[in-house]
């Protein structure tokens, strides 16, 4: 009786799972990886990784790449919850550490620096970090759980300033969007985000003594459905071409 009651939902669940499943990473005739590759990456890596997608798919025509960009802590929770992903790239080493043994030997591939971003007309006349302590300034910060929020907290601590934020955003691109839309007078985001946003915003670099940066580790996941393609992708990110793309996006490459 029980088995009959349970059978249907299980079948439905399997059907749903099959919709999102990967073809196994069997090698094709030329010996390269094939199938689907799922990369979970920090929101700030979007532009760089999107550019690497074309390079990767040219090199490995049998592989279809899917990116999921989000806040690093969200991604870490997804991996812990068993998301069928192959590669994890986070915007800080502590968020990578959240997944523990599920990440196979993460390597730092890039470094990003925090900047103040203001709408291009700079309505509040922001010039320095100290201006962000003014309660009259509308300020968006990343939530303290995500790397850009942690980096912002470090910068304010180093400068001895207590900011008065109006909203905590779930990832760095959400904070950037607030500035792009002109809803806030300022936000603290990464240098790469300011570059990617183009004409609609302006970046104000922080002075060297409060400069806050974060490292980007990348790892193949131990439960990756397609480990061959995952290793190939991480190799591309670490290659000369990958480093060049990251540098052009505004990252420092170790």
């Amino acid at each position: 009786m029980l088995s009959r009651l349970v059978a249907l939902p299980v079948l439905v669940a399997l059907g749903v799972a099959a919709c999102g499943s990967h073809a196994p990473g069997a090698d094709d005739a030329e010996g390269g990886p094939t199938g689907a590759l799922t990369v979970l990456a920090a929101a700030s890596l979007r532009d760089a990784f999107e550019r690497l997608r074309g390079v990767f798919e040219d090199e490995h025509p049998g592989v279809t790449v899917t990116f999921a960009f989000a806040g690093s802590s969200t991604l870490a929770q997804q991996v812990l919850a068993g998301a069928p992903a192959d590669v994890l790239a986070t915007a800080s080493t502590p968020t990578m550490a959240l997944v523990g043994d599920l990440a196979d030997e993460p390597v730092v591939v890039a470094r990003n620096t925090l900047e103040i971003v203001v709408p291009v007309d700079n309505p509040a006349g922001i010039t320095s970090l100290a201006d962000l302590a003014d309660p009259g300034v509308t300020l968006a910060l990343c939530a303290p759980e995500v790397p850009c929020g942690a980096a912002a907290a470090d910068a304010f601590a180093a400068a001895g300033i207590t900011p008065t934020p109006d909203t905590y955003e779930k990832d760095v691109t959400a904070a950037l969007t607030r500035a792009v839309l002109g809803e806030v007078d300022a936000a603290l985001v990464y240098r790469t985000d300011v570059l990617a946003a183009g004409e609609s915003v302006r970046g104000i670099p922080l002075p060297d003594d409060v400069r806050s940066s974060t490292d980007y580790p990348v790892a193949v996941l131990t439960e990756a459905p397609n480990p061959d393609a995952a290793r190939a992708f991480v190799a591309l990110v670490r290659s000369a071409q990958g480093r060049q793309v990251l540098t052009e996006a505004g990252f420092e490459v170790p």
């Binding site: 968006a140 939530a143 759980e145 109006d166 909203t167 905590y168 955003e169 779930k170």
Partner: peptide, 16 residues
């Protein structure tokens, strides 16, 4: 947006 005491309601607090 999401800010404690001003705009962070229970569902936002759960997500956080």
């Amino acid at each position: 947006g999401s800010f404690p005491g001003t705009t962070r309601t229970m569902p936002l607090a759960i997500q956080e």
